[in-house]
C-alpha cells in the first residue's frame, strides 16, 4: 500500500512525466494553448495510459517472456491497435464520451508518454496493480502539467509579452519555471 502510494505520488508530482521526464512534450507544447482542450486531452491520455499499462503487462507476462527483443515492436503495434479498437468501441457505445475524448485518441498513440510509460513500467518490473497505479499517476501528472500550462498560455494572450519571446521560447521558459516549482515536491512520502 505504501509502495502504491509512492508510485502514484512519484509519477504525479515528484517525477512528473512532463516536467521531470520530458515525456509527452509534443502535446504539452502543441495542444496546451486552450484550457478546455488541455483538460480533455489529459483525460483521454490518462485513459490510454491505463490501457497501455494493462497491455504491456499482459505482453510482458504472457507473450514476451522468451522474446524480449520483440518488446519495442510489439508494444507499438499492440498499443496502437488497441487504442484504435477502443476508439471504435467508444464511438459505438457512448457518442457523448466519443465527442469529448475521441478525436484525441489517435493523436495520443503517437505520444511518447504512452510508449515511455510502457517502457518505464517494464524496466522497473512493475506488476499489474503497480503498473495501473503508475499509469494513473502519470496520467494525472500529465493532465496537471497540461492544465497549468494552458492556463498560463491563455493568460499570456492578454499580456504584452515581448515579440522576441513569444511562441515556443516563452512556453519553454514557463515549463522550466514550472519544473523548478515542482522540485519542491522532491522526497514527498518517501519516508
Amino acid at each position: 500500500m505504501d509502495n502504491l502510494l509512492w508510485i502514484f505520488v512519484s509519477a504525479f508530482l515528484v517525477n512528473n512525466f512532463v516536467l521531470a521526464y520530458f515525456l509527452g512534450l509534443c502535446p504539452f507544447f502543441g495542444v496546451s494553448n486552450k484550457l478546455d482542450t488541455a483538460v480533455r486531452l489529459g483525460l483521454a491520455s490518462t485513459f490510454v495510459m491505463l490501457i497501455t499499462a494493462l497491455c504491456s503487462w499482459l505482453l510482458n507476462t504472457y507473450v514476451l517472456v522468451n522474446a524480449p527483443y520483440l518488446r519495442l515492436i510489439s508494444f507499438i503495434v499492440v498499443i496502437a491497435s488497441t487504442v484504435q479498437f477502443v476508439e471504435m468501441a467508444i464511438k459505438k457505445l457512448s457518442p457523448v464520451l466519443f465527442k469529448a475524448l475521441g478525436i484525441f485518441l489517435p493523436l495520443i498513440t503517437t505520444n511518447c508518454a504512452i510508449l515511455g510509460l510502457a517502457i518505464f513500467a517494464t524496466n522497473r518490473g512493475y506488476g499489474l496493480w503497480e503498473g495501473l497505479v503508475f499509469a494513473l499517476g502519470a496520467g494525472a501528472g500529465f493532465t496537471l502539467a497540461l492544465v497549468l500550462m494552458a492556463g498560463i498560455r491563455e493568460e499570456m494572450q492578454y499580456n504584452d509579452t515581448p515579440a522576441l519571446v513569444k511562441g515556443t521560447a516563452i512556453t519553454l521558459l514557463a515549463a522550466g519555471i514550472l519544473s523548478l516549482a515542482f522540485m519542491g515536491f522532491a522526497g514527498l512520502f518517501s519516508r
Binding site: G167, L172, S179, M183
Partner: peptide, 25 residues
Amino acid sequence: VIMVLPPGGFLVLGLILLFFNWFKA
C-alpha cells in the same frame, strides 16, 4: 546544479530559442 536537472533543460533550450529569435529579428 539546476542545469543538469530537468528545469535546466527547459530553461537552456528556451534561452537558445530566444537567442535565435533575436538573431532572426
